[in-house]
């Protein structure tokens, strides 16, 4: 197990822009762990940084792209999947990774998410779920848990949450997984699977917003939040061995969906190949 954390095997400094440090994430934020797991997977897969494109939206998650030593695009709120769709179709030679958040991906960008899942264009989407709009000061998001206080739910949240992975699966994503930041090795390995999967891969990372969400709801500091996530999440692989009642709040973690479906870019190019070279008309 030791080698998993061996700095000789993976030196994150080779994948981040050190001149952009210090980063702007709050102490205790889970986003950095998720980014580390992602870049570790990139490293282990030997993906060429020159061919790596990171597309992010707006919010705390959106800022991560600036820290990665790759072709990075910090786009508009909710739209990274739309930008990435254009980029991946125009440049199938690139490895396209989208970094999004729960507000970015499920609220303002929800339409783009379901259609990206349906289309199955080859890219990996990492959605960092911290249950809150952190950048704007702590407003309720589509994944804010019940009764939680936010600046726009001063009496507690009454809105039901989105199960992002169920949504992605239902919309047709061919690879769907969820993991908590505490399980960095499992998360890294999930990213490796997602990145090599030919099609649209959706990975939800349960992150934590200690400074705003945690403080407002008295959830403790980062270690407490992470431990609590770990204990309330139920690995999918245990579904037959763990009695559900022992884990009443459990959301499934692990690889939840993995199917073979035609990748959109290839399908489009094959479908239209017969037209190539035909004389122009209209």
């Amino acid at each position: 197990m030791k080698d998993h954390l061996n700095e000789n095997e993976f030196n994150i400094n080779e994948y981040i822009r050190l001149d952009q440090m210090p980063h702007f994430l709050c102490p205790g934020c889970g986003h950095g762990i998720a980014l580390r797991a992602l870049l570790w997977a990139v490293h282990q897969l030997g993906i060429d940084k020159d061919k790596l494109a990171i597309v992010s939206g707006i919010g705390c998650s959106g800022r991560l792209s600036a820290y990665v030593d790759a072709n990075t695009y910090h786009t508009t709120h909710g739209r990274p999947l739309a930008y990435a769709t254009g980029l991946a179709l125009a440049r199938p030679d690139l490895n396209v990774i989208v970094i999004s958040g729960d507000g970015d991906c499920l609220a303002i960008g929800g339409n783009h998410l379901i259609h990206a899942c349906r289309r199955n264009l080859n890219m990996t989407c990492m959605m960092l779920n911290n249950e809150i709009y952190g950048m704007t000061g702590g407003q309720v998001s589509p994944t804010t848990s019940g009764d939680r206080y936010t600046t726009t739910t001063p009496a507690g949240n009454t809105e039901p949450v989105f199960d992002a992975c169920a949504l992605a699966t239902a919309a047709g994503a061919s690879f769907v997984g969820r993991e908590v930041t505490m399980q960095i090795i499992a998360l890294r390995d999930m990213f490796k699977k997602a990145l090599v999967h030919n099609g649209f891969s959706f990975v939800e990372v349960i992150s934590d917003c200690t400074e705003i969400y945690g403080r407002k709801n008295d959830l403790g500091a980062s270690p407490e939040m992470m431990m609590s996530q770990k204990s309330t999440m139920r690995p999918f692989a245990y579904r037959n061995t763990v009695d559900v009642p022992f884990r009443p709040n459990a959301m499934k973690t692990g690889v939840l969906t993995e199917v073979d479906r035609p990748e959109y870019g290839n399908a489009y190019r094959e479908m239209t190949a017969g037209l190539r070279g035909e004389k122009g008309g209209t």
Binding site: A53, V55, Y73, T75, T76, R79, A82, Y83, A84, T85, G86, L87, L89, A90, R91, L94, H112
Partner: peptide
């Protein structure tokens, strides 16, 4: 968005 993304791709 897709148009801007494709153009950024060259």
């Amino acid at each position: 968005g897709a148009v801007v993304g494709a153009s950024m791709g060259g």
